[in-house]
């Protein structure tokens, strides 16, 4: 993959009158995994949404997977971005299997993968449970199953570790490794420095709306 996966220059985001991010630079190269740390409200989630092309920055320029963040070309790279956010991206009234099968159907994958990935994330027995009846950790695992199908080149994880058992933590590592192996990258947000340290090459710290390289505790 030529060029950086994420390249932000002077990015600023304002929601209403409130600035959330200010003059932020970030460079993530192919095959790299970056840990994004910072205190509550430092703009980690906002930054992740900007990188995911879901939030248009109010100032600055940026490219993700080669597409400009402010032009229509960003729509074309969305399919290659995988985001696991705070709130689970699941339909609560559908079973886990139906949720994953919906994703497979949308992207034109055969239905045979659905059972396989659910087994892989350890949800084979819970596949017929509705998402709303599943615990937080199970919902997270279902999202990992989704990412296994969409195989994103850029994986964005927002506190994906929160409340997960160690096996599920291994799944996260597996997914991040997959994205890197494809020549993509992963950006992992967490306030648990130690938890994501084994996953990432370096840390970036968000402080009062801007980013600075943090000492890597590898």
């Amino acid at each position: 993959m030529p060029g950086p996966v994420v390249h932000l220059q002077g990015i600023g985001v304002r929601i209403g009158d409130t600035p959330i991010l200010r003059n932020l630079d970030l460079l993530v190269g192919p095959g790299e995994a970056v840990g994004l740390i910072g205190s509550n409200g430092s703009g980690k989630t906002t930054l992740l949404r900007v990188i995911a092309t879901l939030l248009r920055p109010t100032s600055g320029v940026g490219r993700v997977l080669g597409a400009s963040l402010v032009d229509d070309e960003r729509y074309d790279v969305r399919r290659r971005i995988g985001l696991i956010g705070h709130q689970p991206g699941l339909y609560p009234n559908l079973t886990l299997e139906e949720n994953i099968s919906f994703v497979a159907r949308v992207i034109g994958e055969g239905q045979s993968v659905v059972g396989r990935v659910l087994e892989q994330v350890g949800l084979g027995a819970a596949r017929h449970r509705t998402a709303s009846a599943c615990s937080h950790g199970m919902q997270r695992r279902a999202e990992f199953a989704r990412v296994m199908i969409t195989k994103p080149d850029l994986l964005l994880l927002d506190e994906a570790h929160a409340g997960l058992d160690p096996q599920a933590g291994e799944l996260v590592a597996h997914l991040a490794a997959g994205a890197r192996a494809r020549g993509g990258a992963a950006v992992v947000v967490s306030h648990e420095h130690a938890r994501i340290a084994p996953l990432v090459d370096r840390f970036v710290e968000l402080r009062s709306g801007g980013a600075s390289d943090a000492e890597a505790t590898l």
């Binding site: 949404r49 995911a52 879901l54 399919r79 995988g82 705070h86 991206g89 339909y91």
Partner: peptide
Amino acid sequence: PSQRDLLSLLG
């Protein structure tokens, strides 16, 4: 919001 994000990122 999370379903909207999901649909967008599924392209």
